[in-house]
Computed example of a mutant assay.
Amino acid sequence: MGTALLYVLIVFAALVVLSSFVTIQQGTIGVTTVFGKYNRVLFPGLNFKIPLIEKIFKRISIQNRSVELEFQAITVDQANVYFKAMLLYAVWNQDEETIKNVAFKFMDERSFMQALVRTIEGSIRGFVATKRQAEVLGLRKDITEHVKEQIDKTLEDWGFHLLDLQMNDITFDEVIMKSMAQVVASNNLKAAAENEGQALLITKTKAAEADGNAIKIAAEAERQAAQLRGMGVALFREEVAKGMSMAAKEMQQANLDTSVILFSMWTEAIKHFAENSKGNVIFLDGSSEGMDHTMHQMMGMNKLMDNKK
């Protein structure tokens, strides 16, 4: 009987010793109580606790946690908006007061998650209720900042901190989605038409500029050609005048009448008209008076040229 009692005592002592040590996993913090009252915090590793009296009340994860949210909100113009979001949160820090809040603020994890999700949804619904349907899609960042601003203090009181809130999807009722798609399509068509009009205007403007430049170039070429033709005619006349002057001087030196050379030039001119003219008829004044008149004119031109010299 004594031996059996000894065995019982040994086993009891071994159980007491074993229950005096507890292991806390990495990324976790233990909270202990003594007779149901908070006692202390146990950090990762092997920890000693008072056997039979000190108990592990809760093991709290200090790692980041995530949860997906799906809920509905209504805009100020009565449009239904459907949100899909991802919430990332964690324990605020490892201070004793923070850990106590995490351990004792809520009855269990399910109650905490329900309060967290409803708080986030309520904050977003309140924000969306002040906006119009057309504004919501462009307010992802504003919604996130609003939620953080509204619930950060509340979460801190609970011992948590909101790390990130991502709006993964924002949709509307099917009718609204179709109308929005039509608006986008019509805006795209309008932009395409405006771009096409601008391109056509640029093309026509460039073509008009090219035509104008071509006309300017042609006009300048014609001006230069006319100038060169005028210079050619002037040089021709100058050479003719020089030839006539030289011929007249030679005839004067030979005591010949200069009217003979003028008559010769007149006949050569008639011959040239006949050979090169496109017409079929040349009208000449063949009377002696007409011929005499022409000769006097030619002699007058000759005297005028001699006076200039």
Rank of each mutant, 00 (worst) to 15 (best):
F71A: 08
F104I: 05
K105H: 10
V41A: 04
M86E: 14
L87W: 05
F104M: 02
Y38T: 03
Q133S: 15
I56A: 01
S61K: 12
V117D: 01
D77I: 08
N64H: 08
K84L: 05
L139Q: 11
R118A: 15
S61A: 13
A103H: 10
G36E: 11
F106Y: 06
L116V: 05
I99T: 00
R59E: 14
R140C: 08
L137G: 09
F127V: 01
I50A: 09
I53F: 12
N93H: 02
M107L: 11
V81P: 00
K105N: 13
G138L: 13
T28W: 10
V102I: 08
R132Q: 14
G138T: 07
N101G: 04
M107R: 13
Y82S: 04
N80G: 03
S111F: 03
L69P: 03
I74N: 09
N93P: 05
I56R: 02
E70C: 05
G30D: 05
G45I: 12
N47I: 10
Q114I: 10
A73K: 00
L42K: 03
V31Q: 04
R40C: 10
L42C: 08
T130Y: 05
Q133I: 14
L137R: 14
V128Y: 00
E96A: 04
V67D: 12
Y38C: 03
L69T: 09
V41M: 09
A103D: 05
K55I: 12
F57H: 13
M86V: 12
L137S: 09
L139V: 07
F106S: 02
P51S: 14
L42M: 13
D95A: 09
F112Y: 11
A73I: 02
Q114H: 07
Q25N: 11
W92F: 12
E109R: 10
M107K: 15
V91Y: 01
K131Q: 12
K58T: 14
F112C: 02
V41N: 11
I60N: 08
T33F: 07
G122H: 02
F112L: 07
V76K: 14
R110L: 07
V102Q: 01
I124L: 07
K131A: 04
G45M: 15
F43M: 13
I99A: 00
I60E: 02
Q25P: 14
G27T: 10
V136S: 02
R40T: 06
R110Y: 13
S61M: 12
V81D: 02
V76Y: 09
E121N: 04
L88M: 05
M86Q: 09
V81L: 03
A73R: 01
M113K: 13
I53R: 11
A90T: 13
K49S: 06
K105G: 01
L52P: 02
M113P: 01
L46A: 12
S123C: 09
F112H: 03
L139I: 02
N80H: 10
